[in-house]
Design a protein around this nucleic acid. Structure first.
Lengths: 336, 336
DNA sequence: TTGAAAGCGCTAACAG
DNA sequence: CTGTTAGCGCTTTCAA
């Protein structure tokens, strides 16, 4: 079923049919209606691939995230999808699985598919990578992890240093002096900046950041579990832990509970992104919550806008305010 | 950057270049290497849209789920993506948001985009809808909810009646006689069949299914919360509740806890799909766990296979075994 | 207001 | 082994 068929049926040219479908140019009112009717009757659906080829854009927004199972990323995707839908675009989603190799491949794939733009939480750190992304000529909007490069890109993020600072400050205010941190790969800005905020806070409060309590792993449960277990083997334990994302903390908590210790009585805990969709996570986690849906929405909007404006070389860095949700996992210890 | 450019640079025809890129036909070894080298140098990327137009397929698998935030669906998507990647396909993901209207729109969109096939957890119930899907001519693989139609489709599912039966049986074996059920829209097969299994079990065990304890809502937390609150207002309470999915149960548990009751001491609880990614959900839920990743994998494979075999009219109904995970939420009451 | 025709970037006969 | 050519289904000049 294509233009040709309905044109033939009506004994008119395909360009006229095309015109009424696209609402471009003037078409006689009667023929327009006849065409519309026939289209409906025959159930014609335009071939988007052909359109895209002609248009040189696939009306599609690409999204690449490290882990679609993480509800933070799922919410971002939903946000992108919402604006995409409104703008008559669709969304291709890819999971990089925290693997820079896969990320690169998927970026290539998306480019080949002529996406209008890419929303990406990169896991890469090599500036060359971003130059390559840049040279593609289509808009890349970064969130979560920012590109390590001098090139200009659009960015939608929170202030991770500040948020890390605030989160650590909360622990300090609860009277904690022995703090440990679990964070992710240091070439990922979110991991590095959250650590930086943590450091800054401790230093300003006359506390020392103890190297043996700076645990650098991956943003996964297994990683948090492993690092925490190392710490638990030692004589001296921190009184509070700070995790750069939820999965790291969940792993750490597992280790803590297995050891027979409890939260927050023995060890208090806070983290980023612990957005409890179930409402049943115990202990309830004190956490910095990013406005995930909004991040996706804004990122999507930037891409649609740039597409309309022929990719004008204007770059925005949008900094959103996260929320600090205080919960039982960091409650002050009664007594000492 | 296109075929033309590299052909021009080398003073050869574009078809030769095309041949080496696709590895089709015989090409002189030296020219092949020269071409490969030049492609790399110039950083040529084939235009997938043009290829797709020619090929009449976009090498893409479409996936439509009701809610990408639900970890069950997220895992299915991951499964599809894995096989898609291996088969050099990509995945377009859409959220129907449990809205049949959106689902239809997205199906149309996917068809227009010439996807190779569609993996879908439909939320629709009208047979006409499925005839329409059928007439598209591309393979639809259903999971989770099955199409309400006589038409043949590929299906990857668990036996929901049986699983519902087993889950209810577990409660009965724990000594429960006053059972309530929370389920989803009855035009969705998963909701209806799980209820059916529940009924069958109670009847076989000489227990009555009390209409006032059959709560039909949507597969959302709010729905479970609302229905449970109604029940909690009455004098007589069930001693156990059975929910057709995790979100329904999470909502119900919220209501129960707010009322000052506890699980499983006052009310035991079981459900489908409570796959705890965090490991911190309390109480830990007794649940039927579907092999989500495998569902996605198999569904993706079916589509790739059909694409290869020119959509041979062979339809498979694949029934997978779920796991019943027994946890504290359904523990036997000590005493009475 | 309409139609003819060029062309989007690529693949695949077909001919040489 | 290589080049020419005809489309894939659509949009969009340009003429009529």
């Amino acid at each position: 079923m294509q233009l040709k068929d309905i044109a033939k049926r009506l004994n008119i040219s395909i360009s006229t049919v095309s015109r009424v479908i696209n609402g471009t140019g003037r078409v006689n009112k009667d023929t327009r209606e006849l065409i519309l009717k026939t289209i409906k009757e025959m159930g014609y659906q335009p071939n988007e691939v052909a359109r895209s080829l002609k248009r040189k854009s696939a009306n599609t927004i690409g999204v690449i995230v490290p882990d679609i199972s993480n509800s933070f990323y799922a919410s971002v995707i939903k946000g992108v999808e919402k604006v995409a839908r409104e703008g008559e675009h669709s969304v291709i989603v890819c999971n990089s699985d925290e693997d820079i190799q896969k990320e690169e491949e998927y970026v290539q794939l998306m480019l080949q598919k002529q996406v209008a733009g890419l929303v990406i939480a990169t896991v890469g750190g090599d500036p060359q990578l971003f130059e390559q992304y840049k040279s593609s000529g289509i808009p890349f909007v970064f969130f979560d992890n920012l590109p390590n490069t001098e090139e200009n890109f659009d960015i939608v993020t929170i202030d991770n240093v500040k948020a890390g600072y605030e989160l650590a400050k909360h622990l300090v205010e609860q009277g904690h002096e022995k703090l440990a941190i679990l964070t992710g790969p240091q070439h990922q800005s979110s991991a590095a900046e959250r650590l930086q905020g943590f450091r800054k806070c401790l230093e300003e409060n006359g506390l020392s950041v103890r190297d043996e309590w700076v645990g650098v792993g991956e943003f996964r449960r297994e990683s948090g579990y492993k690092i925490m277990n190392e710490w638990l083997k030692r004589d001296e334990l921190p009184t509070a832990i700070f995790a750069a994302n939820d999965f790291l903390l969940y792993g750490a908590i597992k280790a803590i509970l297995e050891k027979g210790l409890s939260i927050p009585q023995d060890i208090a805990a806070v983290c980023f992104d612990a957005n409890d969709e179930t409402g049943l996570i115990r202990p309830q986690i004190t956490s910095v919550i990013q406005p995930a849906d909004l991040i996706g929405t804004i990122a999507g909007e930037i891409i649609l806008r740039k597409e309309k404006n022929k990719n004008r070389p204007v770059f925005e860095k949008i900094v959103l305010e996260p929320k600090l949700i205080i919960n039982e996992s960091s409650q002050k210890r009664i007594g000492g």
